[in-house]
Design a protein around this nucleic acid. Structure first.
Lengths: 256, 256
DNA sequence: CGTACTATTGATGTAGATCAACAAAGGTGG
DNA sequence: CCACCTTTGTTGATCTACATCAATAGTACG
């Protein structure tokens, strides 16, 4: 594993395809689309890729220097300490378009590792520069706070599901969560391409590998989902939502 | 249950005891202590109390109008929908000094109810006004983002504990979490006065009432804690931390 | 063609939910 | 003051969901 920071940097001068699948739209969620400040933000962003699976974006304890958004790919967030059981470390996953690094603000250093699950393209944004820009565009602060606040809420809900649901319910919750988050970014909510092995998904849901397998089988047998390898099709979202005690607009319903 | 907004409002003109156990210090965490802007923030804050236990501070779906900080007391956060099992609704607890409402930013409306567990004193801060002040003191945005980001991380950790730990481990985690959060606000980390019934704490940890009781007994028998009613003394924090797979500075170690 | 890694399936044991009874504490009204 | 009820906590007995152990494929990759 080598330091990825030195390779695959696309010089800014060569890339002016703003908002074209890059992190800009994701970070700003449309706020700056047509503002002149969008250009300024654009200039602060640094794109990197392709980076191979396994690349460490940042490690726990590292000082927060930049926010990071995956353009294409996915990452796993994990605790720093090696546990006896190596599988008990996954804290969560980061999908394309989701801002990574906000949870580092409290201590000014990253609380977890971030490791790429697939070959990925990422955007980076020095936090210092962002602060500078935000001083001129206060809405940017508001936007970051929105994203962060949402993450709080989502995590609370998932925590509730984890502590109280059956294995099948957890899996349903996990799948709906992924679909929900992908739908937000304009990706298909019906067909999920799991960026991680099934077992790792199960593990993050607190399930043993074989329990995960059985839960997948169960959902398939009920006709709620169609699973083919890592391709998961959600056939009956309402049923899944019911099973998972999901209590918000289901993934197919786009939120504003 | 009546609308609490109309009673027990202390006119601002009568209260100039700034930073004296009020939410100001809590929200600003010392940032504005000596700045002239502290006065401005001070003027925006509205204190209320005493409010009786059971008071609904806000309900899910309500638009976000103000942030709220408990000065004395505690609150329970719960889902809006009535489940078959009424106990499966607790999302979390809010302790004195913790900002409530940031999770409402994404949708601009509160995702959960907030109900007082005890007779409490609270501070309120209209979000509009806060935005105005933050425009002049950008550090305030940063501070809010810090708090929110920290909440994200804490919730992720708890989620991990919930999904993978034994009953005793969960309880240990829950107690350490409370102690940790109280210690941050300068309260004792050794002796916890549970603001909620034990069973409700257990419930939030995904434990049945009788399992909660047994877990308490176990921790007591090991000599890790001394429990007398709602008074819990943490006798062996390292042991608890080990059991809970706690992986951060233990409550007695004050973080900067 | 072997060595990982990932997934499936069966057999077994156990942690904890559930059911049920009871005890202690706090409130309320007579 | 005491009878009464509600809330909260404890303890035992049973039952089940899931972890665990173990074996076997299927795939990918060197």
């Amino acid at each position: 594993m080598h330091d990825y920071r030195t390779d695959n940097i696309t010089p800014l001068s060569q890339r002016r395809d703003r908002c074209q699948g890059c992190g800009l739209r994701n970070i700003c969620f449309g706020i700056l689309h047509h503002a002149p400040e969008a250009d300024m933000l654009e200039r602060l962003i640094c794109r990197r890729g392709p980076l191979p699976a396994g690349t460490v974006l940042f490690e726990a304890g590292e000082p927060l220097e930049r926010l990071c958004v995956i353009r294409v790919g996915a990452a796993r967030r994990e605790r720093a300490e090696r546990c006896e059981d190596d599988n008990q470390r996954v804290i969560g996953f980061s999908l394309p378009g989701e801002v990574m690094g906000l949870d580092a603000l409290y201590e000014q250093r990253h609380p977890t590792n971030a490791v790429l699950l697939q070959n990925s393209y990422v955007c980076e944004l020095p936090f210092q520069s962002l602060q500078g820009l935000a001083a001129q565009v206060p809405q940017l602060w508001h936007q970051l706070l929105r994203l962060s606040g949402d993450a709080v809420h989502q995590n609370k809900r998932t925590r509730l599901a984890m502590s109280q649901q059956s294995a099948e319910g957890r899996l349903a919750h996990g799948l709906l969560d992924l679909a929900h988050r992908m739908a937000r970014r304009g990706m298909s909510a019906e067909t999920i391409d799991l960026p991680m092995p099934r077992q790792e998904l199960g593990n993050q849901l607190g399930l043993a590998p074989n329990t995960t397998s059985r839960a997948f089988r169960y959902l398939g047998e009920q006709g709620w989902i169609m699973a083919d390898g890592r391709q998961i099709r959600l056939l009956d979202v309402p049923a899944l939502a019911d099973l998972a005690n999901w209590s918000e607009p289901t993934p197919t319903v786009r939120s504003a």
